[in-house]
């Protein structure tokens, strides 16, 4: 009897030990990632100043010129445009689903959001090539009198906006559901209409949450690779308009990495691009998530 208890206790101790080790190991993943990328990109930073790299727009890797400006601008353009398209749609739909929608619409929307969130990015890319690219080149661009193949910044932004809609919408739904019902009931009992309550109570209270949801959407969009790469055109010069092809940072890494390892500087430059991505995404995530946590505390 004593032996059984002892062996159970030993088992318990052993389990606690290896579980601690695994948990600590996961803590190390982000540190390892950052350290590795810094180590690799330091080769390029040794004889190129960081400021020059970010502000130069000449990308000639074979002659040792690495200007990241076209890629950074393309990335920003595509991401911000995508957020401008997806943001209002998500906000309106979230208010609709939490305040006005009846049970049937909710029952349809929940699986729709789930499936949209689960679809792989390459499927969005295929959809972009089948629908969005011809739509832009045949319908939208001629409206502005522009001739284009359709592989443009705006196509990338459209595909990207569809991809981040389920992501932002899910967070917004959580945020609107977290607002105490009493607040709205108080407003309604004072004679305010439902729309008045939504406009002056709900949105006001949810504002920090909405901002951070958009921030999370932005960071998600920033790192998206394959879908954007397939429709955005990939030309390494600064885009002069939204109907011009662009070349975002993730696409740069995906298109060139693997083949160019024989040139150490090129390899290092691509790692620097990965480091940019990592730092920007983590910074955006960090700020947004801290905002959300503070926001949730207020209602807890």
């Amino acid at each position: 009897m004593k032996g059984i208890i002892l062996s159970r206790k030993i088992k318990n101790k052993l389990n606690a030990t290896w579980m601690t080790i695994w948990t600590v190991f996961i803590f190390f993943i982000p540190l390892l990632l950052t350290a590795g990328l810094i180590l690799k990109s330091s080769i390029l930073l040794k004889d190129h100043s960081f400021f020059n790299l970010v502000t130069s727009s000449i990308w000639k890797p074979l002659s040792g010129e690495f200007g990241f400006l076209p890629f950074i601008i393309s990335s920003l353009l595509v991401t911000v445009l995508a957020l401008l398209i997806a943001g209002p749609v998500c906000l309106l739909s979230a208010i609709h689903l939490t305040q006005y929608a009846n049970r049937y619409i909710l029952q349809i929307m929940q699986p729709v959001i789930d499936i949209l969130a689960g679809l792989p990015s390459v499927i969005y890319g295929v959809w972009g090539i089948i629908i969005i690219v011809p739509f832009i080149s045949e319908k939208i661009a001629p409206l502005f009198g522009i001739q284009t193949s359709g592989y443009t910044i705006i196509s990338g932004a459209l595909v990207l906006s569809v991809m981040i809609i389920p992501f932002i919408l899910n967070i917004l739904l959580d945020i609107f559901n977290a607002i105490p019902k009493e607040l709205q009931e108080a407003s309604l009992s004072l004679g305010a209409s439902q729309w008045y309550t939504i406009k002056f109570v709900l949105i006001k209270k949810a504002f920090p949450g909405v901002v951070s949801a958009m921030g999370l959407g932005l960071s998600r969009a920033f790192g998206e690779t394959i879908a954007v790469l397939m429709v955005v055109g990939n030309v390494a010069s600064i885009p002069k308009g939204i109907f011009q092809p662009g070349y975002p940072l993730p696409a740069l890494i995906a298109n060139n990495y693997g083949e160019m390892l024989s040139i150490p500087l090129y390899d290092s430059a691509l790692m620097l691009a990965a480091l940019f991505l990592l730092i920007l995404v983590i910074a955006f995530n960090l700020i947004s998530r801290l905002l959300i946590i503070r926001y949730e505390k207020r209602f807890a």
Partner: peptide, 10 residues
């Protein structure tokens, strides 16, 4: 949650 946000290309 932060780790979840890191792009897969990285």
């Amino acid at each position: 949650d932060l780790l979840w946000g890191i792009p897969s290309i990285v």
